Amino acid sequence: MRIVKTASELRRSFDLAASEAKGAFGRSELYLEKHLNNPRHIEVQLIAGQRGQVVHLGERECSLQRRHQKILEETPAPQLDSTSRKKLISLALKIAKAMKYENAGTVEFVQSARGEFYYLETNKRIQVEHLITEMVTGVDIVEQQIRIADGDGLGFSQEEIEFSGAAMNCRINAEDPSRGFAPSPGRVEEFVPPGGPGIRVDTAMIDGAVIPEYYDSLIAKIASYGRMREEAIERLKGALSETIIIGVETTIPLHQAILEDKSFVRGDYHTQLLDNKISTWNFKPQLSKEEVAMLHLTTNYPLSGISTSKLERTQTRWRNNLQTEPSPRQPLFVEGL
């Protein structure tokens, strides 16, 4: 995609885009569309069965993007009022019915600063971010897609769908934010996903798995649910801080910066926000006050200078004896193997 701001730029930008399309896809056809400054990207999740049965599962806000690629999604859209929400969903349902759509699918729109909706596309598949819709509705979208494909049709009505709370999803990629998001392929030596109330992790990652440089670098999707948006944010902060991925660099620091950003916390953001702000954020590891204090104590008050009796009298919950070798574990026998 190339943005053309003046008529004098049109010919050169057109030729460049046509050349790139030809080289990448073997075809040079292009289309023009209106460019919107600072729009929001909002999509509607639909499930359409046979005989024109269509239900919606609400909308997802996908405006947090880097170079037109989604980074973090949430539902419901934080700045969408009830009138605009009804209009958006009505448009999505009309599109699905007009094309006699049958499947799970997503109808995508951009919303201008003045509140106007522009149709983007219909994704005829399961979206990466579908899990947050499942978390607020309780509907298993993948199951419904399989049932429809098997001829079962739509097994519920719009009135049976209940919306509850808020959810948001972070795409954790093998990229290094401190080096301009350079790819970080390699072997994941250790992977420990987070847990806890309201946390869901979708991943196929295991210890020792290799992330190649040839394919998508998505490692995991970490999502949170809360009764209110604020609770979902706090739970997601905790989940990201608990996640351990050793061996490759990841975009976790980016998500942590987003969750602390005042514009995001207010729900006041758009598709250009990240590209404008990323250059001002510092993604290099920073020591906390507690870590600085620990280093100071370790340097100035070495453990060797404290007597054993004094250690024993000290009220502490830390163990004084360190286990140098792991204790042997009994082998696990599974019947039939």
Rank of each mutant, 00 (worst) to 15 (best):
I132T: 02
S8Y: 00
C170Q: 04
S327H: 01
T83C: 01
H35P: 08
S263F: 00
A98C: 03
E74D: 06
Q158H: 11
N300I: 06
S184P: 09
G151T: 11
G305Q: 11
N123I: 09
E230D: 07
G153D: 10
I126K: 09
N320G: 10
I222A: 10
G195M: 12
V110E: 11
S307N: 05
T271G: 15
G226V: 10
E160Q: 15
P194V: 06
K94P: 00
E189C: 04
L236N: 01
S178D: 10
Q53N: 15
I245Y: 01
R319E: 15
A7Q: 04
K100A: 08
L236D: 03
S63Q: 09
G267P: 09
P212N: 10
G165N: 05
I244Q: 02
R147G: 06
D152C: 03
I246H: 02
P302I: 10
V107N: 08
G165L: 04
Y118N: 00
E61Y: 05
D140L: 11
I141K: 12
E9C: 03
R11L: 09
I126L: 15
K5R: 05
E290S: 14
L16I: 06
T83L: 04
G26N: 09
G198A: 00
G186A: 12
A149V: 13
F25G: 03
G195L: 12
R319Y: 12
A17S: 10
A98V: 02
H270F: 09
M228N: 11
R313F: 03
C62S: 08
E116K: 11
A7E: 07
E242N: 00
N169D: 13
T298M: 02
C170A: 10
L120H: 12
N37K: 13
G52M: 14
R266K: 14
T83H: 09
P78E: 05
A48M: 06
K94A: 02
C170T: 05
P193M: 12
I244W: 02
F14P: 01
A7F: 00
R114E: 15
Q272D: 15
I245S: 01
M1G: 02
E175G: 06
A166F: 11
G208M: 03
N320S: 10
V110D: 07
S164F: 09
F156L: 15
A7T: 00
R319P: 09
T75Q: 02
E260Q: 09
M294I: 06
K100N: 14
E290G: 05
L36C: 12
E213H: 14
P185D: 08
N37S: 15
D152V: 03
M205K: 04
D216A: 00
L218H: 11
T243Q: 04
I211T: 07
R187Y: 03
T308I: 14
Q158C: 08
K100M: 01
L10S: 00
L91V: 01
R317T: 09
G336I: 10
V136D: 12
A257V: 00
E134C: 00
W281G: 00
D216H: 01
I222E: 08
S263R: 01
F333I: 13
M135N: 08
K284N: 14
N320M: 15
E116Q: 12
K34L: 13
R85S: 03
